[in-house]
């Protein structure tokens, strides 16, 4: 381990920061890094395409929606999920980067759960995919912990006056999945039909499940 990492080498005049050597335009900055690392033999552009394809097309909120719909349909599954979500979702094939430790938290009439990462943008990638822009915004990171009801109003959500909010600030490698309340009038629905009602935002706690 190089001594420089004892204290990261950035606390000096900003014109000395290595990143300032890159082109000013963001797209060109990325291109410059990709080109440099490719020329040094350190990254393979085809691997980059594969990573992008994974998060654009293979991993997304449909995964989490399946988990929620099953929890709504199957009390035994729900119980196991609330007990040890990491194991239950891994058994469904939802495991990996940014989803190594998962806890499911269930919304009820008494308690609404909402998830944020105030320090960066931690998010359960294998279940929900890449976090939306607003989740990574300063506004959400700053305000979700202090003013969750104001933030919910910006999503068009108003909770009953007697519902308590518990905000989960993801400060470690544990990722939180909100189980929204099941909409009325969906008795007897199949898991796949129920999953259509489960939005990404409802699994972060900034939305509710769709009404049928």
């Amino acid at each position: 381990m190089r001594a420089s990492l004892q204290c990261m080498p950035h606390d000096h005049h900003d014109h000395d920061d290595p990143h300032a050597l890159l082109p000013p335009e963001p797209a060109l900055r990325v291109k410059a890094l990709e080109t440099l690392l490719t020329r040094k033999g350190l990254i393979d552009p085809a691997a980059l395409d594969e990573i992008i394809d994974t998060y654009e097309n293979k991993i997304g909120p449909k995964n989490g929606a399946q988990v929620v719909a099953r929890a709504w349909s199957d009390p035994e599954f729900r119980g196991a999920l609330l007990e040890d979500a990491t194991k239950v979702v891994a058994d469904l094939g939802y495991f990996g980067r940014q989803g190594e430790h998962v806890v499911a938290v269930e919304n009820t009439e008494d308690q609404h759960n909402m998830v944020v990462c105030t320090l960066c943008s931690c998010y359960p990638w294998p279940l929900l995919g890449i976090p939306p822009g607003w989740y990574k915004s300063d506004a959400y990171r700053a305000r979700a912990v202090r003013a969750p009801r104001e933030v919910l109003a910006e999503f068009g959500v108003t909770l009953p006056a007697d519902t308590r909010i518990r905000v989960w600030d993801s400060t470690a490698e544990v990722r939180y999945l909100v189980i929204p309340m099941r909409p009325d009038g969906t008795e007897g629905w199949s898991v796949d039909d129920l999953a259509q009602l489960v939005t990404r935002d409802s699994m972060i706690g900034t939305g509710l499940a769709r009404q049928p």
Binding site: V116, T118, S137, D138, A139, A142, T206
Partner: peptide
């Protein structure tokens, strides 16, 4: 920045 004031609305 958790709890900070002044950041404006969250845009869904």
């Amino acid at each position: 920045m958790g709890g900070r004031f002044g950041d404006g609305p969250v845009v869904p």
